[in-house]
Each structure stands twice: as C-alpha cells, then as structure tokens.
C-alpha cells in the first residue's frame, strides 16, 4: 500500500486511473444490459420464439431444421441451455471452419440473443441448465479438495497448472487461465467435444464449486519461486537454460578467458 501511495504521481497512474474508470463504465453497462433479458424473460414464450428464428437463420444448416442433426452437425435435442451458452458465447458456434476442433473466438451473438438461442434449445428437451449465481458461489469451499479433484479429473488433459495440453490428431485441451466460473461449470456439465461430461453424480455441485475455486486459485496466485516460466515444468526450464543461462555463462567464460591477455 505504501508503495502505491508513493507512486500515485507516476505518469502511468493517470493512465491506470482512466483504465479503471473505463472498466467501471463497461462493467455497469454489462450488468445493465445483462439484466435486460432477465426482465424480458417474464415471457419465456417470446424468448423461445425469438431464439427459434435466430436458430433457423444461423444454425439449422448444420444442426437441422428441428435440431435433429445433419451430416454437418450433431443433434441439439437434449444438450440443454448450458451447451448453447458455452458454445455460442465462447464463439465456437456457429462453426466457422471445419478443423480438428471448433475454435473459441469472438462471439457472433450478443448476450440477449445467446439467451434466446439457449431458451429455444432448452425448450426442445430437458438438459443441463445455465448455472445460477448461487451455483457458482465459491465462498466456503475447500480449495485443497478442489485441487485434488482437479488433478484427478482434469489435469490429464488440461495440465496440472491448467496451462492446457495436446490431445491426438491436432485436438487439444485449452488453457484454463482465462476461463470464467460459468464457463468452467458449463464445460463440466456439457462436455464439449473431446471433453467428457462430469454429471452431478460423478462430481457433485459442491465439488464442482471446489474445482472452480482451485482453478481461480491457479489463475490468480503469484509464483513463490520467482519468474514462473509458464509453470509447465521442464520444457520451458530447458529453453531458459539453453538461452539465457547459457548466454550468461558463455559471456562470463569468454570474459574471464580474455582478461589476462
């Protein structure tokens, strides 16, 4: 805190302040606009209908007119609102290009439209729901238990530090360093692409919250040992060894070798 006070006259301080202000405005806007569909949702029926329109325009070519699936895409009957929310707000759907796996990217639909699409797909058959704020409440959960569950269930694909890992044939489990709690929950309940579904019977909602808390811990914790080199272990350590360390030692050796001449 002391250093913060000391640096408040730093030229960057103004820039930072502006940044905070912008973020605050954006945050308020986001909250305001997010609450808008909630008000509109008192008529679920209209939402489903709006969603159906969007669906027919943007999704039916691959998922079929009645979401029954085509050769270009699987059926969406029973995948639930959570799957749609996960896939569309992460920009994976609508699928842009065929590839090893759908790529995340900027979302094509705004939050209101995502909610409408989700409502439509949810209306076809029951499926996993979008988590509520209560589902995602990580106060009073056991982070260490979350770590244990994470290492048992997730680390084999996402790596122990959540940095992501390779799967076969160009598929990969993405890094979780930027994943939001809602996204993590939805990924667990819907099992996108090569990821398995972790239903409430295999990982209880409490355990899911613990996992989320542990991933947040990974995202925010500082590295006690100094420069963290990506925390993926020996590969980056090796690269560092044979670049920076080797250069320092070679420089010292040549300097010492030179001096007496």
């Amino acid at each position: 805190m002391k250093s913060l006070v000391a640096r408040r006259r730093h030229p960057l301080a103004l820039a930072l302040l502006l940044l905070f202000a912008l973020a605050a405005v954006a945050g308020i806007y986001a909250v305001a606009s997010a609450s808008a569909p909630a008000i509109a949702s008192d008529s679920t029926q209209t939402q489903v209908e709006e969603g159906k329109k969007l669906y027919l325009e943007g999704c039916s070519s691959c998922h079929g007119l009645g979401a029954e699936g085509t050769v270009n895409g699987p059926t969406l009957i029973g995948v639930g609102a959570a799957a749609v929310d996960f896939q569309v707000s992460s920009g994976r759907m609508p699928l842009a290009a065929p590839g090893a796996q759908a790529q995340a990217g900027p979302a094509m639909y705004d939050e209101k439209e995502v909610a409408q699409l989700a409502a439509y797909v949810a209306s076809l058959a029951p499926g996993p729901q979008i988590p509520t704020a209560e589902d995602l409440n990580t106060d009073n959960v056991d982070v260490a238990l979350g770590g244990l569950l994470f290492r048992t269930n997730c680390a084999q694909c996402h790596q122990a530090a959540g940095g992501g890992g390779a799967l076969t044939q160009g598929k990969y489990a993405p890094s979780l360093m930027g994943s939001e709690p809602k996204e993590i929950w939805e990924a667990m309940v819907t099992g996108p692409q090569s990821m398995p579904v972790f239903s409430d019977s295999s990982i209880t909602p409490d355990d899911k919250r613990a996992i989320i808390a542990y991933i947040e811990e990974l995202q925010t914790s500082a590295s006690p040992g100094g420069l963290d080199l990506g925390r993926i272990g020996p590969v980056t350590e090796t690269v560092f060894l044979f670049t920076a360390v080797a250069a320092a030692l070679a420089f010292a050796a040549i300097w010492i070798g030179m001096k007496a001449r």
Binding site: R151, Q156, A160, G165, L218, L227, D228, L229, R231, T238
Partner: peptide, 26 residues
C-alpha cells in the same frame, strides 16, 4: 529469481493421476 520445478502445482504423487505435458528434466 526464476522458478524451477514448482512441486506445489503438480501435487502429491498418486498412481491414479497424471498431468498433461509431463516432461523429464532436459
């Protein structure tokens, strides 16, 4: 200054776990 082998991230060994990206030293 430079972290090496952050064992607290990898967790304790149990035979039923494995992490993606497991590598030996160089």
């Amino acid at each position: 200054l430079v972290s090496i082998n952050p064992i607290w991230i990898f967790g304790p060994y149990t035979p039923d776990q494995v992490s993606a990206g497991s590598q030996p030293d160089w």
